[in-house]
Design a protein around this nucleic acid. Sequence first.
DNA 1: CTCAACTCCAACGTTTCCGTTGGATTCTGA
DNA 2: TCAGAATCCAACGGAAACGTTGGAGTTGAG
Lengths: 195, 195
Amino acid sequence: MAWNTAETKRKLKDAAVAEFAAHGLDGTTMEKIARRAGLNKERLYSYFGDKPQLFATVLADELNKVAAAVPLTEIEGPQAVGDYAADVYDYHSAHPELTRLLLWEGLMDLPEVPDEAARTDYYRAKVAVFERAQREGRISGRIPAADLAFLVLALAGWWYAVPQMARMMHADKASGAASNRTALKEAAARLAAPE
Amino acid sequence: MAWNTAETKRKLKDAAVAEFAAHGLDGTTMEKIARRAGLNKERLYSYFGDKPQLFATVLADELNKVAAAVPLTEIEGPQAVGDYAADVYDYHSAHPELTRLLLWEGLMDLPEVPDEAARTDYYRAKVAVFERAQREGRISGRIPAADLAFLVLALAGWWYAVPQMARMMHADKASGAASNRTALKEAAARLAAPE
DNA sequence: CTCAACTCCAACGTTTCCGTTGGATTCTGA
DNA sequence: TCAGAATCCAACGGAAACGTTGGAGTTGAG
C-alpha cells in the first residue's frame, strides 16, 4: 500500500477536531485522537507538535472554513442583518465543532490567540461592512458597528454556548431549532432597525 | 486552635470556584484546589466527594448567589429590559467566575445538569416576567418570551464567552467596558421595543 | 539492485493526577 | 481526667497521559 501523507494528516486533523470540540484541550488525549484516526500517536507529534500546537492548528483551520462558508459583503438593510445571523446560526448548527472550539479557546484566556493578525483582519472586515451600511443610512447607527457586529454573533452563538440554559428556559413547549431561528432573525434585525 | 469546619469548607469552596472557573473540570486538579485553600486534598474528598460532585456543588452555589443578586420581578418597558441586561453584565463583570462555570458546564453537554429542577424554575420565573410584560403590552410580543429572555442573556454574556473575539473586533479603538455596556443596553432595549 | 530517506507503530520512561489510608492531633462529653 | 469521636495531613498505590525512541516496513532515485 502506498504512503499517503496528505490523507494521513487529514484523518488526524479530523479526529482532532472532533475530540477537541467534544472535550477541550485538557479533556482530550493524544492517544484517543490517534485511535479515532486509526493511527499511532507518534504521527500526531511528528506532524503537528505537542497538544497545544495541534489545538491551535485545528482551530485556525476551522476558522478558515467558516470564513469561506458564511460570507458577508453587503448589508442592504435590517432584514439582511437578520439573514446573516440566521446564516451563522445555520452554519453552527451544521458544524457545532467550530463554536465549541472557539468557546474552549475563550475559556483559556490566552493573551494572544493563534493566527491573531489574520483573524483580526477577518473580524474587522465584517465590522467594516456594518460601518458602511450605517454610514449610508441603510441600518441604524445607534449601536457602534463593532458592538453591533459582535452582538449579532452573540445572538447566533449563545444557543451553542449554554445549551443547558436554552433547554431549561424552553422547558414547557417543544419549541425546536426552527422557532429559535425565527426568533433570532427577528432579534438581529431589530438591533439594526432604523429609529 | 479550635476546629472550624464551616470556615474550612468555605475556604475549600472558594478555592474550588477559582480553580474550576479558571481551568474547567478537566484542567483543575484537586491538589491545587487544596493548596490554594491552604489545606489537604483529603479534606476535599471527605467534605465534597469526588471532582465532578465538587464541581456540581460549586456551580449550584454560585447560581444561588446570582439569583439573589440580580432580581427581576417586573418589566415596565423596553428601557427596563436594557437595564436588566446591564445589571447582568455588571454582575458578570464583578463575578466572572459564574459565567465561566456555566460555559464549562455547557461544553460538557450533560444530559441533565445538577439542580436541574430548581434552575428550571428560576429561569421559567424570569420568562414569566417577560411574558406578563408582553401580554400587558409594555414590550413587544414579536419575539416569544422564552427566546427574548434567553437572547437578552446572550447579549450580556457573550463578552465573557468569547473575550478573544471581543478584543479582536474592537482592535482599533480602545472602546472599554463602559462603551460595551452602553451598546448592550441599547441592544437589549431594542429587542423589546414596541413596533 | 541498493541505499538513504521517509512513514509508521509498539513499547517505554516519566510525570501527573486521582482517590485512599494510617496515624497524629484536637476537641468534647461524661 | 479520659475515652472516643472528629479533624487534619503526609504518604501511598494505581491509573492515565505525555512525549520519545528504536526499529521495522516502504518508497524512489541513482
